[in-house]
């Protein structure tokens, strides 16, 4: 009886995945008159290549440090080392990914594909921020709507509403909220501070764009996880609360000793579902920022699509898909291992 389901999964998911897997070891283009060649791990190497370089500050002829306008030491330009410098062949074509000061020196972490690295880090950041935050907010909401109040069902419905609206629609609407000139958020903040607030270009600044995207993503999905929490809350027998009340436990004590222990399994599920969804981050990036400003909102799936489709580099795009699969697979194996231990 599992037949139809397995056949469909095999043809429409597993087969294409293996095709992608195979393509990631070639130089296949989406469309090209050139023959396809097997290139081994080259696609993966060019994605993952990293190197380090330590530079000493520039000194004048008398040995004094040459200071920049801001009084900090200055360093030689990286491109002198990474562009066709015969002394540093292993760094050729790499770019600065991160750098920090170490004493007088400056240490550079270089990557051959900085955009991919940023996408990788962003995706992890997204997961690491969204999973706990969204989980916690959803729990808060679930506690809020688990009260016995008249009309509470209406509130449950409202909190769940963004979930049924398409992410494309949500992302388009939030562009109006985040607009840098007279967006709704700036208008609201200006109103609350009696005009004292200076408008922020939420999606236009590298420091705020990703946070803005995270906030919106949580807004859209938190209702769904609220409902999962709610299901967990409702499985906790009433007599436990009764007992806590008789023993004169405070609200916090009740939560810590009665509610939370009863929610363990739900917590695991919520965390897993959010993690999976968070790794697939794509639509928001596509509709709101295209990965910008300066790669601050890149994501792995967006890069996979961008390369495979937009830049017609199906081999490179597939390599990212394969890496993403391996990452999520290992994480879910770890999560599974951790959950096994508990039960």
């Amino acid at each position: 009886m599992a037949g139809p389901s397995l056949v469909i999964l095999a043809v429409f998911l597993i087969l294409p995945f293996f095709l992608a897997f195979g393509l990631s070891f070639t130089n296949q283009r989406l469309i090209s008159p050139n023959p396809t060649e097997y290139v081994g791990l080259r696609n993966f190497e060019s994605l993952l290549g990293v190197g380090t370089l330590t530079l000493e500050p520039l000194r004048g002829e008398n040995g004094d440090l040459i200071l920049g306008d801001d009084g900090a030491p200055t360093y030689p330009r990286l491109r002198g080392y990474t562009r066709n410098n015969p002394d540093y062949p292993h760094l050729n074509g790499m770019r600065e990914w991160i750098s920090w000061s170490w004493g007088e020196n400056r240490i550079y972490l270089l990557a051959s594909d900085v955009v991919f690295m940023r996408a990788l880090v962003n995706t992890f950041l997204f997961v690491l921020i969204v999973a706990p935050l969204q989980g916690a907010l959803a729990l808060g909401l679930a506690l809020l709507v688990n009260q016995k109040l008249k009309g509470i069902n209406a509130f449950r419905a409202i909190f769940f509403m963004p979930v049924v609206v398409s992410m494309v629609v949500v992302a388009l609407l939030w562009r109006f909220i985040y607009d840098g000139q007279n967006g709704l958020l700036n208008t609201l903040l200006a109103f609350l501070t009696f005009g004292g607030f200076k408008p922020v270009d939420w999606l236009g600044n590298t420091s705020t764009a990703f946070g803005a995207m995270i906030a919106m993503s949580i807004w859209q999905a938190v209702g769904f996880h609220m409902v999962i929490w709610l299901s967990g809350l409702q499985t906790i027998p009433e007599h436990l609360y009764e007992a806590a009340r008789i023993e004169g436990a405070s609200r916090l004590q009740t939560f810590v000793h009665v509610t939370w222990p009863g929610l363990r399994n739900t917590a695991v599920l919520v965390l897993i579902v959010i993690t999976m969804q968070a790794f697939a981050l794509f639509t928001q990036v596509d509709v709101m920022t295209n990965g910008g400003p300066i790669d601050s909102t890149q994501s792995l799936v967006y890069q996979a699509v961008q390369r495979g489709y937009g830049q017609q580099d199906i081999a490179g795009g597939s390599a990212i898909s394969v890496l993403l699969f391996l990452i999520v697979l290992s994480i879910s194996l770890i999560q599974r291992y951790l959950t096994r231990e508990r039960t």
Binding site: R29, N34, R83, E96, N290, G292, P293, Q311
Partner: peptide, 29 residues
């Protein structure tokens, strides 16, 4: 052009774009 408008280092950004374009030309023989 987007990145430079958003404040990225001009020379580094143009280098990166030039490298990517040259690499793509090589990849396509």
């Amino acid at each position: 052009l987007s990145d430079i408008a958003d404040g990225a280092d001009v020379q580094d950004t143009l280098d990166a774009a030039a490298d990517a374009i040259t690499a793509d030309i090589e990849k396509n023989s």
